[in-house]
Amino acid sequence: MSTTTALPTRRAPDSFAILLMIGLCAIWGLQQVAIKSANAAVPPVFQAGLRSALASLLVWAWARSRGTPLFRDDGTLGAGMLAGVLFAAEFICIFLGLTLTSASRMAVFLYTAPCFTALGLHWFVDGERMRRVQWLGIIVAFAGMALAFADGFLPSGPAGASAHGSTLARAAGDALGVLGGIAWAATTVVVRGTRLAHTSASKTLFYQLAVSAVVLLALALGLGQAHVETVTPLALASLAYQAVIVAFVSYLLWFWLLTRYIASRLSVFSFLTPLFGVTFGVLLLGESFSTRFLAAALLVLTGIALVNAPVRRRAV
């Protein structure tokens, strides 16, 4: 790619971009359900490593077919390694958290990431200062998170020690969801605040997938998880969905949208992802949630929408 060619002017999302973003949010919302449905067959850390490894091979093949260099020395190695480690940390939290909490709850806690991203960019990246409406969004989202945590400590099963243990496990899974959101936000800050912001989307994605594959597979080996309990059609379909549809196709489509449309206008759709996640958890896994958790989720979604609110410019 020539670095002298002027970048195309980014425009507001049209109907095609809006429909594509809704589709992407549905794909991302289904991801938690896919992971949870395969955890019994493939240990979580090993499943995450296989997902990253398969997707990194697909990105490498895609970049090679388009003549996009992935191994040229452009000063991004250090930042790319850090982004990959953070990406691995995010999915360790997601995959382990889904063994403890529901896919619906994980979807809400994980997608607090835009709020943490806004805070990180405000503190570490020049020109990314938050506006008052974004601070309001942070407060509203964090209030929703606190309410959701409080709901998580309410027993959902039989009284006694088993209910107490289940409640503590669910709270731990919820906390891992938040940590996953923080790791996701930190990855975004690294990408935006380093030389990765000026490299190709394929190379940035390849760094995250390839490095995380090494980290996750090594960790799975160390934990004794580098095996498959049972090979089932559901587990294979889940792994294919995560690697091909989510980590390869959807991420490349997202990066493609970012090159043509205004990022802030696209990001506002992120509030749909936890909504899809909760819906799929209820419909496909038979999960349930309380009125308190529904109110908490609505607060989180409102906060995300406020954080991603587009800047209103005065007419001149």
Rank of each mutant, 00 (worst) to 15 (best):
F269A: 06
G152F: 12
R292W: 12
G173R: 13
W256C: 02
C93D: 08
G49Y: 02
L306A: 00
L283C: 02
A210L: 15
Q47E: 13
G177N: 14
R105C: 00
V178S: 11
S290D: 04
A146E: 10
V133C: 00
T4E: 10
Q208F: 12
G303C: 07
L176H: 09
L219K: 08
P114A: 10
Q208N: 09
A218L: 15
F87K: 12
A143Q: 04
A79E: 14
A34Y: 10
Y241I: 11
W254K: 00
I138W: 15
G127L: 05
G286Q: 06
D126W: 04
G29T: 07
A220W: 08
G97T: 03
E229Q: 12
A315Q: 13
S104E: 09
G29A: 05
L110W: 09
T68A: 01
A17G: 12
F71I: 10
L70S: 06
G78I: 08
Q31D: 08
A17I: 11
R314Y: 03
F142W: 13
F71K: 05
Y111D: 09
G173S: 04
G23T: 05
A107M: 01
G193M: 12
R64Q: 14
T232C: 05
G127N: 03
W28G: 05
A213W: 02
E287L: 02
S250I: 13
C115Y: 03
F206T: 03
G67R: 07
L147E: 11
M106H: 05
G137R: 02
R314D: 12
P233M: 14
V59I: 15
S288G: 15
D74S: 00
A169Q: 13
G286M: 14
L234G: 00
V133L: 06
A163I: 08
T194G: 11
A159L: 11
R313N: 02
P44D: 04
G180Q: 10
T302K: 01
A171V: 14
V282H: 06
A218Y: 05
L96W: 12
L136E: 09
H227K: 08
T167D: 09
G80M: 01
C115F: 14
F87E: 04
L253Q: 06
V249D: 00
M21R: 10
A89P: 02
C25F: 11
T99G: 15
